[in-house]
Design a protein around this nucleic acid. Structure first.
Length: 321
DNA sequence: GATTCGTGGAG
DNA sequence: TCTCCAAGAAT
């Protein structure tokens, strides 16, 4: 039994599209991976880096990667440890490992070209529903429904009337996002914008990017800038009196966690130009600063080796080859 | 479905 | 200072 999805009437939906996409044309950021010269590989690299990581932190690293590895084959030819080192402090270094593995798969299975279909993309390591839809849409113009945390928040407020989306992505949200997509045969197929003209097939991509950008710049999680919002006059959350979220977000503990200790180990390995003994590794300042006991240090080191984020050879531990 | 997985800036 | 959280994916 599927519940009916609450969606605006066609006229209201059209107004919503017009308001948000126009706002995007005026206020959207000129991010390098949105330029045509970025190519599918540039889009793909950006999507991996942007998973749970702010744009401002991704920008310099993305430029380094695109200069050093302009194609999937260029990255695939390097040891995975080079990808990890170049990943720097973006966080979640397994993303670098997965991107490296995906590049190798692209060389082996796709003749070195980033595949353009959702099904091919989602089969790559590190690509889930969001990333597959985003690459297919932003790099190839496929009319996929893209749903990220920004888009979920905009929908929760503007349409549903809640301060924040539920912690877990629901089927109702997916139906809503699909229902909000612009019609495939829109009457106004070519609209001028700062990045060129959008043809009919790119309407969906423009919509996806626009809603995402609205969530990132205006409809933010904390202190939303409703005064600058193009759809404030019809926002269900504002109409409801901007009620507070009805759940308390769970904190992300950090001090003393394995994540902190693993991160400290990885920072040492990134900076080392030769393998290190376990004693050297544990004695490093950043590791000592975690104040971790011997059992936790051992457990974290073992997990890094098991994850392929580190490699132990005859001369010690280093980034993988 | 709940957990785990880095990092650092903003308020 | 401390809490929140930022274009998620895999298990």
């Amino acid at each position: 039994m599927q519940k009916t999805t609450l969606t605006p009437a066609p006229a209201d939906l059209h107004r919503l599209h017009t308001q948000i996409t126009h706002w995007f044309d005026v206020h959207g950021r000129d991010l390098p991976w949105r330029r045509p010269e970025a190519g599918a590989w540039g889009v793909m690299v950006s999507e991996y880096m942007l998973q749970q990581t702010p744009v401002v932190r991704v920008l310099p690293v993305w430029h380094e990667w695109m200069e050093r590895w302009p194609t999937p084959a260029d990255l695939a030819a390097e040891p995975s440890g080079e990808a990890l080192r170049a990943w720097g402090k973006l966080g979640y270094p397994r993303r670098a490992l997965r991107l490296h593995a995906a590049a190798q798969r692209i060389v082996e299975d796709h003749d070195g070209e980033v595949p353009g279909s959702f099904d091919e993309l989602i089969s790559l390591p590190g690509v889930g529903d969001y990333t597959a839809a985003a690459i297919a849409c932003f790099a190839f113009g496929a009319p996929e429904t893209v749903v990220d945390t920004n888009i979920r928040r905009v929908h929760a407020r503007a349409i549903t009337g809640n301060a924040l989306p539920e912690p877990s992505y629901t089927a109702a949200e997916a139906r809503l996002a699909a229902a909000l997509m612009p019609p495939r045969d829109a009457a106004d197929p070519r609209l001028p914008g700062p990045w060129g003209e959008y043809d009919d097939g790119a309407l969906a991509c423009r919509w996806n990017a626009a809603v995402m950008e609205l969530g990132a710049l205006v409809c933010t999680a904390r202190n939303p800038k409703c005064d600058a919002c193009p759809v404030a006059s019809s926002c269900a959350w504002i109409e409801a009196g901007q009620p507070a979220p009805h759940y308390t977000p769970k904190g992300q503990p950090w001090a003393g966690t394995d994540r902190q200790v693993r991160g400290a180990f990885m920072a040492v390995l990134r900076g080392a130009d030769a393998p290190l003994g376990r004693d050297e590794l544990v004695a490093a300042d950043v590791v000592l600063a975690t104040d971790a006991k011997a059992d936790q240090l051992e457990r974290c080191l073992a997990s890094l080796l098991a994850d392929g984020l580190a490699h132990e050879g005859a001369h010690g531990i280093s980034l993988p080859h």
